[in-house]
């Protein structure tokens, strides 16, 4: 029995070598998240004539394990905007709590129950553009302190002039906008499909709601076919000037895996 309690419960040094104390993080930078653990895959979104459609599947993966199959990764904000999260799920949940607080503060600041004629965009509430700016500052600040929130975030809604708004921010605080956006695998698989229908803002402004929803659904199907970390259960949100319609129980329909038989050239298969 070792007489020093500090040595109790540790691997024996004469067998395993000295304990590597660098893992104890007694000092140095905070390392809350230095790599993502439970993750969500792509989020995709597309602008149309009078709003934005966004979709993400309901899966939270633990590496290659499909760990949680009922995780909602789209979050409405003040029923005027939608925020979609890809990347680390714990960081998403942190941001979700943070946004809930923000939404409550906003609701107290701007009581728009009395003037129902005003649209949320004109009522002085935080619109999607404001929210995106807020999140981008938050993410950039966290990257500056080497304690990033490991997410790629899409924000959809309307800007101050009440035109459809869609923008992205990632773990480094990089922001950008486009008529269609997709994170992760979606950037390779879904974005080309969406760009075929809405290459420019003008093209996107011609899309009807039904067309946009159909395109996004098609993209979700392509993603499920080819992204191994995806699920056939997904959420879809449509933001219009009337508010947010969010459905979290969508099921991929009319799947056909016939194409799979024709795939050649992977693994041990040679003919």
């Amino acid at each position: 029995m070792d007489h020093r309690p500090q040595a109790w419960g540790r691997p024996r040094d004469d067998v395993y070598g000295a304990y590597d104390a660098s893992y104890l993080h007694t000092n140095g930078p905070k390392t809350a998240t230095q790599s993502p653990i439970v993750t969500g895959t792509s989020v995709i979104a597309l602008k149309f004539k009078d709003g934005v459609v966004m979709a993400a599947d309901n899966l939270a993966s633990y590496g290659s394990l499909a760990r949680f199959t009922d995780v909602k990764r789209l979050r409405p904000f003040l029923s005027t905007s939608v925020v979609g999260f890809g990347g680390d799920v714990s960081d998403m949940q942190f941001l979700d709590r943070h946004l809930t607080e923000l939404a409550i503060d906003e609701a107290y600041e701007h009581d728009n129950t009395s003037s129902s004629s005003e649209t949320p965009a004109t009522a002085g509430q935080l619109n999607a553009a404001n929210l995106h700016k807020y999140l981008s500052k938050l993410m950039y600040r966290r990257r500056n302190s080497f304690d990033p929130l490991w997410n790629q975030i899409l924000v959809a809604g309307f800007d101050s002039s009440s035109t459809p708004f869609l923008a992205s921010v990632d773990l480094r605080g990089t922001t950008f906008t486009s008529p269609s956006l997709a994170s992760g695998f979606g950037a390779m698989l879904a974005q080309p499909i969406m760009r075929r229908h809405a290459a420019t803002e003008e093209d996107a402004a011609k899309l009807t709601r039904d067309e946009a929803v159909a395109i996004v659904r098609e993209c979700m199907k392509v993603l499920f076919y080819r992204d191994a970390r995806s699920l056939d259960k997904y959420s879809i949100a449509v933001v219009t000037r009337d508010g947010v319609e969010l459905s979290e129980e969508e099921q991929l329909e009319k799947q056909s895996w016939a194409f799979a038989e024709r795939i050649r050239g992977y693994g041990t298969q040679t003919v």
């Binding site: 040595a7 304990y19 104890l24 007694t26 230095q34 790599s35 080497f146």
Partner: peptide
């Protein structure tokens, strides 16, 4: 830091392969 029974000196750096996913800002 705490004392150890045989080889007391803690390694200055983490072993090879550890913390490979350092954040690149």
């Amino acid at each position: 830091g705490p004392n150890y029974s045989v080889n007391d000196a803690p390694r200055a750096t983490a072993p090879e392969g550890a913390r490979q996913h350092r954040f690149d800002p």
